[in-house]
Design a protein around this nucleic acid. Sequence first.
DNA 1: ATCCCCATATTGGTCGACCAATATATCCGA
DNA 2: TCGGATATATTGGTCGACCAATATGGGGAT
Lengths: 231, 231
Amino acid sequence: MGMNRVLEQPILSGREQAIEALEAFIRDGQYAPGDRLPPERELMVQLGMGRTQLRRALEALEMEGVIWRHVGKGTFIAKDSAAGSLSALSRRVSPVHMMRARLSLEPAITREAAIHASHDRIIPLRICIDRSEDAATWDEYEAQDDAFHRGIALATQNELLLALFDQLNQVRRAIAWKTVERATDRPPHDHNSFVQHRAILEAIEARDADRAHAEMRTHLGSVEKRLFGGF
Amino acid sequence: MGMNRVLEQPILSGREQAIEALEAFIRDGQYAPGDRLPPERELMVQLGMGRTQLRRALEALEMEGVIWRHVGKGTFIAKDSAAGSLSALSRRVSPVHMMRARLSLEPAITREAAIHASHDRIIPLRICIDRSEDAATWDEYEAQDDAFHRGIALATQNELLLALFDQLNQVRRAIAWKTVERATDRPPHDHNSFVQHRAILEAIEARDADRAHAEMRTHLGSVEKRLFGGF
DNA sequence: ATCCCCATATTGGTCGACCAATATATCCGA
DNA sequence: TCGGATATATTGGTCGACCAATATGGGGAT
C-alpha cells in the first residue's frame, strides 16, 4: 500500500494570482529600487486584469514594503529589497535553508518554554504525544506533530516568539514537499520522533533549558536527515 | 547637555488608521473566532469612514488571516487567533518579551553566521564596528549598531532567517522606547558594546559557532540589563 | 535667457451604481 | 403539511466617472 503522495500546489485566490502576476512583472522587468512602474491604467492592460484587482495587488505589495505609491507621482520600487511577502519567500527559500532556520529557531523556543511554561501549557503537549503515538494515519500523526511544536511555542508565553514560529511554520507549509515513499499507512511503533518528543517534554517539565534546547536540536536533526538522507 | 529623548509614536497613514480603527472595533466588540462582523455598509458608518477605506482595512486583515470574507455570506473572524499584523503585535508585545525574543533568535542567527558567512559578508561587519566606535552622536552609533546586527543576519546566507530577523527588528523599532537619560552626546570610549561586538566578530571569523552564540547572548544580556536595570 | 504663473495632462484615490454570490422568504404543487 | 422552485433581499466585488495631488509645458514679464 506504499504510495507516493505529492502535495499539490495550493489553489490561489484571485488576489494571490494578481499579486503573483505583479511580482513576476516586477521581477521580469528587472526594476531596481527607485524605478517607476507603469501607471495603473497601463499596467492593468499589460497584466490583463481590472483596475480593482490590480489595486489590490499594489496595496498588498505596498503594505509589504516592496513598493510605494503617491498620488500624481506614480508607483515606485522601494529601496529595501529584502521586503516581500511570505508567499514570495516560500518560493525563494530552499528546503535546506528552511530546515536550517528551524534548527536555529525551534531549539531556542524550546529553551524558553522550559523556563516559562505553565502547567496548563504542558498538559496539551503530553496529549499531543499520546495522540501522535496512537495515530492511525500519517496525516493524523502530522497534525499532532504540528500541534506539539506549536504547543511549545505557546508555552514560551511570548507572543512575539509565537508569531515568529507561526511565520516560519507558514513558510514550511507553503513549500510543496514531495514526501518520501512510505511503506506503512502510519508511523511504525519505533518511529524515533516518539522518544524524541518525550525527551523534549521531560526536559521542559524538568525546567532544564539547556537539555530542552539540545533535545529539540537532536529531534530536528533527525527530521533533517530523514528528509535529505545521509550526508 | 543630557536630555531625555522620547521617540514619538510613528505617524500613521490613512490605511494604517483604518486598520487600527477596525482592529479596535473587533477587540472592543469581543468577537470570537467564527463570529460575523456587521456588513460593510454598516461598518463604514459605525467607523466613520468611506467604504473604500474600510475595504482596504478589511483587505489587510484578511491577508493577515485575522478575518475571512465571502460574497453573499459576510465577513467573519478567522479561527486562528494568533494571526495579526506586525504593527498590532508591536502594541501587544512588552519590551521584556521583545528582549527575550531577541535573546532567543539572534544568538542562533549568529551561530549560523559563524558557519556560513562568506568573506564579503564579514568585511561590512568590521566596517560597522569601526564606524560605531567613531560615531559622533548616539544616532550615528545606533545606525551602525543596527547595520551590524542585520549584517550578521545577512551573513547567514539564509533568506528565511533574514526575514525572521527583519520581522523581529520591525517590532523592536515600532515599540516606542523611552530612552534612558544620557550624560553624553555619544557613546563613551569604554562602552561595553564595542568590545562585545568585536568578540562576536572574532568568533564568526574563527568559525566558532558555539562561541559566536555565547558572545551574542552576552552582548544582548548587557543590552537587556541596561534597559531594565538590575535584576 | 531665465523665472514665474497658469493651464493642461497625468497619476493614484474615492464614490455611487451596478454585478455576482449567497441567504431568506414566499408561493405552488403534491 | 412538506418540499422544491422562484423571487427578493443581502452581502462582498467590480466598474467607470470623478476627485485630489502632482508633473509638465507654454506664455509672458523681466
